[in-house]
Lab assay of single mutants.
Amino acid sequence: YETDHQDYCEVCQQGGEIILCDTCPRAYHLVCLDPELEKAPEGKWSCPHCEKE
């Protein structure tokens, strides 16, 4: 399936195990989030940028 999400972390610009925001195209490593997450959230997730909106 096709997605318009970026394939690198918004914070460190590296690829790998990233989680995708359900609201925007941004993607993040769990450890690059502040506060960092230990595991990917279940269900819908909005990144810090979208949470501020």
Rank of each mutant, 00 (worst) to 15 (best):
T23F: 13
R26F: 05
C32K: 00
D4L: 12
D4H: 09
P41E: 07
H5C: 15
P48L: 11
V11H: 15
L20Y: 14
H29I: 00
K39S: 05
E38N: 04
L30G: 12
K52Q: 02
E10T: 10
G43Y: 04
C24Q: 00
C24K: 00
C12T: 01
I19Q: 11
C21Q: 00
C21L: 01
Y28D: 01
W45Q: 04
E17Y: 11
K44Y: 02
H49T: 13
E2M: 15
I19H: 13
Y8G: 12
E10L: 14
L33Y: 12
P25T: 12
E51I: 03
E36P: 12
Y8P: 15
G15H: 07
A27R: 08
C9N: 01
L37I: 08
S46D: 06
D22R: 09
E53Y: 05
E42L: 09
C24M: 01
Q14L: 10
L20F: 12
E51T: 12
E17V: 03
E17I: 14
E42Q: 05
E2T: 15
D22Q: 05
W45D: 04
G15N: 13
K39M: 14
E42V: 12
P41G: 07
Q6H: 04
S46G: 10
D4W: 10
C50M: 00
K44F: 04
D4K: 12
D22W: 03
D22H: 08
P25Q: 08
Q13G: 14
C47R: 00
G15V: 07
I18A: 14
I19S: 08
E17N: 14
K39Q: 05
C50Q: 03
T23G: 04
Y28H: 06
S46R: 07
R26Y: 07
E42C: 05
E51V: 05
P41V: 08
Q6R: 06
E2A: 09
Y28M: 07
Q13E: 08
C21P: 00
T23Q: 07
L30S: 09
P35G: 14
C32N: 02
G16R: 12
E38W: 07
P48I: 11
C50S: 03
C47A: 01
V11L: 14
H29P: 02
E53F: 15
V11N: 10
G16H: 15
Y8R: 14
G15T: 10
R26I: 09
E2G: 12
Q13L: 07
H29T: 00
T3S: 12
E38I: 04
V31G: 12
Q14N: 09
D22A: 13
L30V: 07
G43L: 08
E2S: 15
D22L: 09
S46T: 11
Y28T: 04
Y1A: 15
C47M: 00
I19N: 13
P35Q: 09
V31K: 04
